[in-house]
């Protein structure tokens, strides 16, 4: 089984080499005439005011948190799905309860307006 991952390892090495080679090749083939305007930040021809940081919504962070929780849930469902054929009806009900508890969480988020993006 580990040798299968050997293929993944070798493929990942090749997958790194290809874009690096392309970028290095482009770097040497292309012309090089740097000037301060060219290497300046692009903002549709307007000079940037202040630093790049702008006020971000906390909503992004909330989405990240909700995602994390559902991601963990999905991870737990996968082994159950693999073992599904030899589970008893009771076990399946346990798995379903697991999903329903999280569905409750989703509706809680919904009620509290955490899913609104205004």
């Amino acid at each position: 089984m580990l040798s299968q991952w050997g293929f993944v390892l070798i493929l990942s090495a090749i997958a790194v080499v290809i874009p690096v080679a392309a970028i290095v090749l482009g770097h040497f083939l292309g012309p090089r005439r740097p000037d301060p305007i060219k290497t300046d930040v692009y903002e549709s021809g307007v000079e940037t005011i202040g630093d790049t940081w702008v006020q971000f919504r906390a909503q992004y962070y909330l989405i990240g948190l909700i995602f994390l929780i559902f991601d963990v849930e999905v991870i737990f469902l996968f082994p159950i799905a693999v073992a599904y054929a030899d589970l008893s009806f009771f076990s399946v009900i346990a798995a379903v309860t697991f999903v329903i508890i999280l569905l409750l969480g989703l509706f809680l988020e919904w009620r509290k307006g955490a899913l609104e993006w205004t």
Partner: peptide, 10 residues
């Protein structure tokens, strides 16, 4: 999940 709302809600 409930905690996430309390923490990050505006």
């Amino acid at each position: 999940l409930a905690g996430a709302i309390v923490l990050a809600r505006d």
